[in-house]
Design a binder for these strands. Structure first.
Length: 446
RNA sequence: GUGGCCAUAGUUUAACGGUAGAACAGCGGCUUGUGGCGCCGCUAGCGAGGGUUCAACUCCCUCUGGUCACCCCA
């Protein structure tokens, strides 16, 4: 019976030639809303990370989302995919070429130079940053066009301890979050020794029998970035690289010493790593130590790297600053959250209230509002809904919130200067003199 | 950017060339000062556009979005 009019209404509304101006405007591709449930995970990751990072003496800093496009072209590299294909860029009204940050390091380097941080009393300068970045890639799970990263950088420290220490910090964060990761580590040498190695590598790949095994992409890589030949997943390319010269055998003495020491420190700190001679990173500025954090059990771990970083000793100078050795890493917050969910790691329910304050009637509502302020000042974890007037819906809410006790103040209690305390589990309730409420609460919440 | 798979209420889903059923959630009632359980009721949907057809949620195309692989990357 009730259906006919419903259908008619529908038909009518269809026939009205309403334009589509009432259509929902959906969110952009690859963009996500971080809803409260997800946000709890975000907080978990950020809180644990910050706790550890701060302990190691890093200070939080922030940088603009929008920068001069040249900043990224020069640091990240104009040829890299990140800059050449994935950046959101536009010409500003006054003609400036600007871009939204696709990574944090260039901005942090710029900030370091611009504020003369090499003059700061405490050296090296240790900074961390938490925020979001944008890359216009085709979205996938664990890959969004806007994503969050936790970044950590050290400026002004050349010694291998620093390398080991930042790896250790990331390692501790993952451990605290109960995520098993493999540290993949390699050294890609410096500007002194790498060119010679790249030449050797290119020479090796030029051999006909090797070259014939390469996939199409790798043939392109030979011209663009021979180092990239090493981390192709194609089976034939993996075969081809078997005999390839390895960079660790071609490092200059300084680079080798540095790398060996990094590994020694890691050994002593019980950080388990996998020396991966095929690990090279996609950004132009790296030298010496490079590393990534791969999820433990995943075969395609490479693609879902939870974080990565390395040394960039020449970048500060290259960007116009004084010669300053530096290093850092970035962790992908969304990917870490994905892992935490996969592992069913429970959230600490710290925000949960213990007490619900219910009221009935205008006068008691006023009293309850004042009482609630008192509870807040005295640090009780209390909840309320003064908007709802009937007791039923208030108790329903109290139940959903999972509180232990509900305090009820109605007309009668107002008159008697009392309050009802209801134990939500047993359903037992008792009337108490208002003056003795706190005493009773403390007893029951203990 | 390339290729594969996918798209039904807020969520998880069912069915069908003749315009959709369920579960959970939400709201209301049984209970006008008492939550959980139960019962009853209500709300709410074919991603968008085009084509084929007497008839399309169903078939075809395009787009949009998701997902997976590649490229690349966190």
């Amino acid at each position: 019976m009730g259906r006919k009019p419903k259908n008619q209404t529908k038909r009518n509304s269809k026939e009205i030639p309403k334009k589509n101006d009432n259509k929902v405007i959906a969110r952009l591709r690859g963009m996500r809303d971080m809803l409260p449930e997800e946000h709890q995970y975000y907080r978990l990751v950020v809180n644990k990370s910050e706790e550890i990072i701060k302990y190691y003496g890093f200070s939080q800093t922030d940088i603009p989302a929008l920068e001069n496009l040249s900043l990224y072209e020069r640091s990240t590299g104009k040829q890299t995919d990140v800059v050449s294909k994935e950046m959101y860029t536009f010409i500003d009204k006054d003609g400036d070429r600007v871009g939204i940050r696709p990574e944090a390091t260039p901005g942090l380097v710029r900030s370091y130079i611009e504020h003369g941080m090499f003059n700061q009393p405490i050296q090296p300068v240790k900074l961390y940053w938490i925020g979001n970045l944008m890359r216009r890639e085709k979205p996938q799970s664990g890959r969004y066009r806007q994503f969050s990263q936790i970044d950590l950088e050290i400026f002004g420290e050349a010694g291998p301890v620093a390398d080991a220490q930042i790896i250790l910090i990331a390692n501790r964060i993952f451990k605290d979050l109960q995520i098993d990761v493999q540290v993949q580590i390699n050294s890609i040498g410096c500007k002194e020794c790498r060119p010679a190695y790249v030449d050797k590598l290119a020479e090796y790949y030029k051999q006909r029998q090797v070259r014939n095994k390469l996939c199409q992409d790798c043939k392109k890589r030979m011209l663009k970035n021979p180092l990239r030949l090493l981390d192709c997943k194609e089976e034939s390319c993996r075969e081809a690289r078997a005999e390839a010269p390895q960079i660790v055998d071609h490092l200059c003495e300084e680079c080798r010493d540095h790398f060996v020491k990094v590994l020694e420190y890691l050994d002593e700190l019980d950080v388990i790593y996998n020396l991966n001679p095929f690990l090279v990173r996609g950004l132009d500025y790296y030298n010496r130590t490079v590393f990534e954090f791969w999820p433990e059990e995943n075969e395609n771990a490479r693609q879902n790297a939870l974080g990565g970083g390395g040394r960039y000793d020449d970048l500060v100078e290259y960007m116009g600053g004084r010669p300053t050795p530096a290093l850092g890493w970035g962790l992908g917050v969304e990917r870490i959250i994905l892992k935490i969910k996969e592992n069913n790691i429970p959230l600490a329910d710290d925000g949960k209230p213990d007490i619900f304050l219910a009221q009935l009637g205008e006068a008691s509502k006023r009293k309850a509002m004042i009482f609630f302020e008192e509870l807040r000042k005295k640090k009780y974890k209390a909840a309320q809904n003064f908007v709802k007037d009937n007791l039923k819906s208030q108790l329903e809410l109290a139940d959903k919130l999972g509180v232990k006790l509900t305090l009820i103040i109605g007309q009668k209690e107002m008159m008697d200067e009392t309050v009802i305390i209801r134990d939500m589990e047993s359903g037992m309730q008792e009337v108490f003199d208002f003056k003795k409420v706190y005493e009773e609460l403390d007893k029951r919440l203990k």
